[in-house]
Nucleic acid binder design. Structure first.
Length: 675
DNA sequence: GCTAACTGAGCA
DNA sequence: GCTCAGTTAGCG
C-alpha cells in the first residue's frame, strides 16, 4: 500500500532507481567483461580432460579468464566446455601461448584452486597409460580421490614434533643381510633397491617402519603399499611406534571419502611425507620421495581390477625410477617378477641366512592318509596333526589353515588325483549334498559307481569341506579348547596369546601376539591343483604367509605329498630357490617376466579385426583366439621382453585408432596377472 | 562419449 | 529452396 500513500514520490524514485540499476548493470557488465578478458599473465591453460576416449588422451588448450587467473594453477580441477558439453579436467600447465590455431574456449569454472594433480603424478600417469595401453584419465581416476569440499576448507594439521632418536633399525633387522647397509644408505640420502625375503616369524611391519624411518631421517618421504586394510593397520601402528605420532598418514578405501581426502591433502600439501596404504597409495603425492615399499607383491590385491589394470609393483618401481627413490620389495616369498629384478641387477637381495631360518621355525610334512570315504565325517585330518595340535596347544595358540570352501569344488581320484569326470558329458563331478552321490556339474547326472578312467580306482578324494567342518572336527578332538574360525565375511585381525585353535582360510589368518605355537597347513594339494600359471608360486605364498605367523622357534606341519617340489621349498624355507626355478621355467617357456604378454578381449569380430589392425613388432606371436563366457573371445599377444615397450605402443595406437573410428571396443590388458 | 555441421531425401 | 532425419568429423 505504500505506493498509494505516496504517489507523487514514485516517478522520481523510480527514475533514480532505474538510473542506479542501470549504472549497476553497466558496472557489472564491465566487471564481467574484465573478468572474461584473458588473464594478463599466462592466459593459456593446458587441460587434461576427463573423457574416456583413447584418441582424446592429450592436453587441450583453454583461455584463462582474468577472474580465474589466480585459481587456475597447475594441478587444479576445472570444468571446461568440450565437444559441446561440460567435462571435468585438470590444469597441467599454464603458458603464454598456444599452438592451437583456432580460438580458445575459456575455462568454464575452476572447481577448486587446490593443486591435486602434482606434476610427478601427471607424468607417472602418462607413463603408466603408455605401458598399459590405456588412458591418462583412467589412471588419474585411480590416483586422485574424490574431492570433499568441507575437508578441503580445513587446513592440514602440521606434522607433530619428530623425536628423532637414533632408531634401533639395525637391531630390528637383525638376521637379514645386508640390511644394515641398506638402512644406512637410506639414512645417508641414497636410493638403494632391494628384494627382501623376510625371515619367518618376522614382525615385518616393524622392519618396514624402520626402513621408512631411515629414509625420513634423510629428509625424504616414503610410500608403503600393502595388500589389504588389515596390513595397513599393522604398518600404521609400527610407523607410530617408530616415527612417533602425527608423522604419517594412511590411505585406504575403508576410511571413507572425507578421511581419505584429508589424508591425501596432508600429503599433497606437504604436511606429511610418509604414507602406508593399499594399492591406490602408490599414487600418493609424497614430496621428495626417498623410498617406495611393497609388501607381498604376489598378492593379487596388488593388481588393479580397473582399467588400465596397473600393478602396484610396476607403479611403484616406475615411480622410484622417475623420482630417484630407493625401493624395497618384501615378502615371505618371492615372485618371479622380483626374482627377475635380482637377475637383471636392478635390485640387490636382502634375506636371512640358513641358520637364522632354522632358528625361527621347522617345517615338517605329514603324509595324507589314504582310504578315506568322501562321506565319512572326521577322517580328513591325519592323526599326526591331532597329535601335533594337542602338543602345541599347551604352549600357546595354534593356527590351522584350510583352503576355502569351493576353492576347487571338483572331485578327483583318491589315488592318482585325476579329476573325476562325468561318464556322459565329461563335465566335472562334485558333491551336491551330504547324503547324495556325486553328480556332474554340467549335466547333473548322478554317478553311483564311479571308477577312475586313468587307474580304475574307485575312491574319490573329498573336496574342501570348509573351515567350519575343520573347526568342528578339531573341536571334537580337543574338548575344553576354544576353536574359532576366521574366513570370508568374518575375518579376525588378531588373536590373543591364550590357548586356542584358530581355523582360517588362506589370506584370512589372524596375527597372534607373540606368534603361534604351531601352524598347520591342511589339504595342501588343493592349492596346488589350480590350473594357473602361478599355481606353485601362489600356493607357496599362501603357505609361507601362514607359516610365518609362527613364534620364533615354533613348528609348522603341512599335510601333503612330501615329494612335491613346492612343499619341499616350504620345508627348506627356500623362497629364493623356488622363485629362481620358476623363473628358469618361465624363461624356457617364453612366459613373463622373460616375455611381455598382453590380452585382447571382446566380441569375436572385434578381436579379430583388432589383431589385423595391430602393428605389433615382427617378433610378436598371436595365440588364439579362444572363446570365453558370454560370447567373448580373447587372444594373447607375446613378444620378447625387450620388445615390450614396442608392444605397448602398438596396443595404445590400436586403441586410439579404434576409438577414433568408433569401432567396437576391445579390452586390452598388458601383463595380466593370470591367464 | 557428445555436439554440431553436413548430407541427401522428400516436398512445395 | 526448404525442412528433417541420418550420418559423421572433430572436439582447444
Amino acid at each position: 500500500m505504500a505506493d498509494d500513500e505516496h504517489p507523487e514520490l514514485l516517478p522520481g524514485l523510480a527514475r533514480a532507481e532505474v538510473k542506479a540499476s542501470q549504472a549497476k548493470a553497466r558496472a557489472t557488465r564491465a566487471r564481467k567483461a574484465a573478468e572474461a578478458a584473458p588473464a594478463t599473465l599466462d592466459p593459456v591453460a593446458r587441460v587434461l580432460v576427463d573423457v574416456p576416449l583413447a584418441h582424446l588422451d592429450r592436453p587441450f588448450d583453454y583461455a584463462v579468464p582474468a577472474a580465474m587467473a589466480d585459481a587456475a594453477v597447475p594441478g587444479a580441477r576445472v570444468k571446461v566446455r568440450f565437444a559441446g558439453q561440460d567435462v571435468d579436467g585438470f590444469v597441467v600447465a599454464r603458458g603464454s601461448e598456444s599452438d592451437h590455431t583456432g580460438r580458445l574456449s575459456p575455462l568454464r569454472r575452476v572447481v577448486s584452486p587446490e593443486p591435486v594433480l602434482h606434476p610427478q603424478i601427471a607424468a607417472l600417469a602418462g607413463e603408466l597409460a603408455e605401458r598399459y595401453a590405456g588412458t591418462r584419465s583412467d589412471v588419474l581416476r585411480l590416483a586422485i580421490p574424490a574431492r570433499h569440499a568441507t575437508t578441503e576448507k580445513e587446513a592440514s594439521a602440521p606434522a607433530g614434533p619428530w623425536h628423532h632418536e637414533p632408531a634401533d633399525g639395525e637391531a630390528a633387522w637383525a638376521g637379514h643381510e645386508p640390511a644394515a647397509a641398506f638402512l644406512r644408505h637410506l639414512a645417508d640420502g641414497g636410493s638403494p633397491r632391494a628384494v627382501w625375503a623376510a625371515a619367518p616369524a618376522t614382525d615385518w611391519p616393524l622392519l618396514v617402519a624402520h626402513a621408512a624411518a631411515a629414509t625420513y631421517a634423510s629428509g625424504r618421504g616414503v610410500v608403503v603399499c600393502v595388500p589389504d586394510g588389515k596390513d595397513v593397520t599393522r604398518v600404521d601402528r609400527a610407523l607410530t611406534e617408530v616415527l612417533g605420532e602425527g608423522q604419517h598418514v594412511t590411505l585406504t578405501a575403508e576410511s571413507g571419502p572425507a578421511r581419505r581426502y584429508r589424508d591425501f591433502l596432508a600429503l599433497s600439501r606437504g604436511a606429511r611425507r610418509v604414507v602406508v596404504g593399499t594399492r591406490a597409495a602408490a599414487f600418493a603425492p609424497v614430496a621428495d620421495l626417498g623410498l617406495v615399499v611393497i609388501w607381498d607383491d604376489g598378492d593379487d590385491l596388488h593388481a588393479e581390477p580397473r582399467a588400465p589394470y596397473p600393478h602396484t609393483r610396476e607403479t611403484l618401481l616406475l615411480r622410484a625410477e622417475r623420482e630417484g627413490a630407493g625401493a624395497l620389495i618384501g615378502g615371505f616369498v618371492r615372485t618371479v617378477e622380483s626374482a627377475y629384478l635380482l637377475r637383471t641387477g636392478w635390485a640387490r637381495e636382502i634375506g636371512p641366512d640358513r641358520a637364522e631360518v632354522r632358528r625361527r621355525l621347522t617345517v615338517t610334512i605329514a603324509g595324507e592318509e589314504t582310504h578315506r570315504d568322501v562321506h565319512a565325517r572326521g577322517a580328513r585330518i591325519p592323526r599326526e596333526v591331532h597329535v601335533a595340535v594337542r602338543e602345541a596347544i599347551e604352549a600357546g595358540p595354534v593356527l590351522v589353515q584350510t583352503p576355502r570352501l569351493g576353492y576347487v569344488n571338483a572331485l578327483a581320484c583318491e589315488r592318482c588325483r585325476t579329476p573325476a569326470r562325468c561318464t556322459t558329458c565329461q563335465g566335472p563331478l562334485a558333491l551336491t549334498g551330504p547324503a547324495t552321490p556325486p553328480a556332474c556339474r554340467w549335466c547333473g547326472t548322478p554317478v553311483e559307481a564311479w571308477a577312475c578312467a586313468e587307474c580304475g580306482h574307485r575312491g574319490l578324494r573329498a573336496p574342501v569341506l570348509g573351515d567350519a567342518r575343520t573347526a568342528e572336527e578339531l573341536g571334537r578332538a580337543l574338548p575344553g579348547v576354544r576353536v574359532r574360525t576366521s574366513s570370508g565375511e568374518s575375518v579376525l585381525a588378531t588373536v590373543p596369546t591364550t590357548k586356542q585353535v584358530v581355523v582360517a582360510t588362506p589370506g584370512a589368518e589372524p596375527v597372534a601376539e607373540g606368534g603361534y605355537a604351531a601352524v598347520v597347513l591342511l589339504d595342501t594339494w588343493l592349492l596346488l591343483s589350480r590350473i594357473d600359471l602361478r599355481a606353485g608360486e601362489e600356493a607357496l605364498r599362501r603357505w609361507a604367509d601362514a607359516a610365518a605367523l609362527v613364534r620364533p622357534g615354533g613348528r609348522v606341519l603341512a599335510v601333503g605329498d612330501p615329494a612335491h617340489p613346492t612343499l619341499q621349498a616350504l620345508v627348506r624355507w627356500d623362497p629364493a630357490g623356488h622363485a629362481a626355478r620358476e623363473t628358469d621355467e618361465r624363461i624356457a617357456a617364453h612366459l613373463p617376466p622373460a616375455s611381455r604378454l598382453a590380452t585382447i578381449t571382446g566380441a569375436a569380430g572385434a578381436v579379430d579385426d583388432a589383431v589385423t589392425l595391430l602393428a605389433a613388432p615382427p617378433s610378436a606371436e598371436v595365440l588364439g583366439p579362444v572363446d570365453l563366457a558370454d560370447g567373448e573371445c580373447r587372444v594373447v599377444v607375446r613378444v620378447p621382453r625387450a620388445e615390450g615397450v614396442e608392444l605397448s605402443r602398438a596396443l595404445g595406437e590400436l586403441q586410439r585408432v579404434r576409438s577414433a573410428r568408433k569401432l567396437d571396443a576391445v579390452r586390452v590388458q598388458v601383463d595380466p596377472p593370470t591367464l
